[in-house]
Amino acid sequence: MAATVNKEVLYGVYDDEEILLDAIKEAKRAHLEIWDVFSPFPVHGLDPLLGLSESRLHIAGFIYGAIGTLTAFLFMTWVFTRDWPMIFGGKPYWSVPSFIPITFELTVLFAAVGMVVSFYIVNGQGPGVNNAILDERITDDKFIIAFSVNNYSEEEKEKLSQFLSGTGASEVLTKEMPA
């Protein structure tokens, strides 16, 4: 039953990304633990402040691509040297230059499809997914710093609200989110 306890979120709404960045710097100085930051577009300079490590998607992409390369090249090699050798235009069975275009295409196809699928899986997104939306203005023009306050006392929550207003938040709100 404990798993169904809702997440209690207290968040400050900012009107501009530069104020947001300054507010996050303040929060770091005050050793506050930020749950998440939301914005209508990718804010530059945010990731190092939040201590987000660089995405490893591109490494996954390289691996997917390499699988594509091998699949295409080895398959064509097998077909034309083992399974059903044939001569086309007087060229050898194993005509490497002829295999390059398809090998390239499958490399790109595997890398792209693999990365996009991985992206949605790690993000917990996809067709039919209903994620709880913290505030509908995030996708319009508001920038949000959110704190998870389940374990906070009322007094701490009050202090946090004051902190957020003090750093330029135009509104401070709370919301229950499904855990």
């Binding site: 945010l46 990731d47 998607l57 993000n123 917990g124 997104q125 996809g126 709880a132 913290l134």
Partner: peptide, 12 residues
């Protein structure tokens, strides 16, 4: 697809 606008999602 359930987009939330989270910083980590934007980074990815």
């Amino acid at each position: 697809f359930g987009w939330t606008g989270s910083a980590k999602h934007w980074q990815r």
